[in-house]
Computed example of a mutant assay.
Amino acid sequence: MRLPLVTVLGECVADAFTAPATAQGELALRVLPGGGPANTAVALARLGTPARFLARLSDDVFGRLFRGHLESSGVDLSAAVRATEPSTLAVAELDAQGRAEYSFHARGTADWQWTADELAVTDLATTACLHSGSLALVRDPGGPVVEDFLARASATATISLDPNVRPLLVAPEVYRARLPRWCALADILRLSEDDLGLLLPGCTIERACDVWHAAGVPLVVVTRGEHGAVASLHGERIVVPAPPADVVDTVGAGDSFTAGLLHHLGARGLLGGRLTGLRVDDVFDACVFAAHVAALTCGAVGPNPPWAEELRLPAPMAGRAAR
């Protein structure tokens, strides 16, 4: 059975990780293809979901790296724009827990230059779900164009969003101002506990879910790293524990969780339209699967999600806790 198409719209970023230098006075960097939306598209394709990536990919050395990585993972780049601007670079330092702190080199780069004409030619007829978010949705000049595209897509497709707040590049208050509009468009809002702290400082997960439901989004999923995830469907909440993981780093884990969630929902025929047939048990099962995909990503260097054949699904979890 062919799974429904998921279209992903957003950036692809060169993630440069510090590495041991070979001589004194040098800084060595290992560059891997990254960027939240690109990571999600790769993870979807590796899981077996047809994934089309709408991106503006440069022809520079990083852009060629991106194309090779995406295509080798099975991502459809037929609608990607060949951009003249340079690629975005993020330099990452990992802490003792494998979490990354980034500095960005993103002024005038390809990812943020979307025009209405570039997206107007995109055919959405076969897209069951459109996933977007991160910096491409919030950085000008392209952000408003992407938002308009989401509005058009919402007439026929399930809309999934991940704000992926990056305060070094865009002030959190910009996200806060736009998030109610995104919630009105979206069917799924997936974000991290760190994102929540930046968007609604001092707010509990339960209260944040209620705020975002009131703004229009039916399903909210907050990932909490080693503490698992909390999901809320129209206010009915569940807690999903995190499976054991041998953590190398956590880069791309949230993006893999999103991909696992969408893949599982799509495989069960639940994507497309407004999720009217979705039940909280469906959400729990999808989140268990998504957490497993994220845990496997944590066991690899950088944003390197697993392939379908690498998955060993856990036994059904007991203690499905409702809140």
Rank of each mutant, 00 (worst) to 15 (best):
L27T: 12
R99W: 15
E173A: 08
N164S: 06
A208S: 08
E173S: 15
G133I: 03
L278W: 02
T250M: 04
G108D: 02
T258C: 10
A79Q: 15
L161G: 15
V220E: 08
E118H: 04
D59P: 13
H213F: 10
E193T: 10
G68M: 01
D195C: 08
P303S: 08
L313H: 11
G34N: 01
S103N: 13
A186G: 01
L161T: 13
A116G: 13
L130M: 02
R166P: 10
V240E: 05
R67T: 09
A120W: 02
A55G: 08
I205K: 08
G299C: 10
A214W: 07
H131C: 10
S103M: 15
L196V: 03
G142A: 05
P305F: 02
G266R: 02
L137S: 14
A28K: 04
G272P: 15
L54A: 07
A128E: 02
A116N: 14
A267L: 14
F149C: 02
T40V: 12
D195Y: 05
D15E: 02
A21K: 09
F104T: 07
D281M: 02
P201R: 01
G142N: 04
L27C: 06
L135F: 15
A215E: 09
V283H: 00
E26G: 13
A80C: 01
E309M: 09
L296R: 00
C129P: 03
V301T: 15
L311T: 00
L185H: 15
P163N: 01
H234K: 13
F284E: 05
A45T: 01
D76K: 00
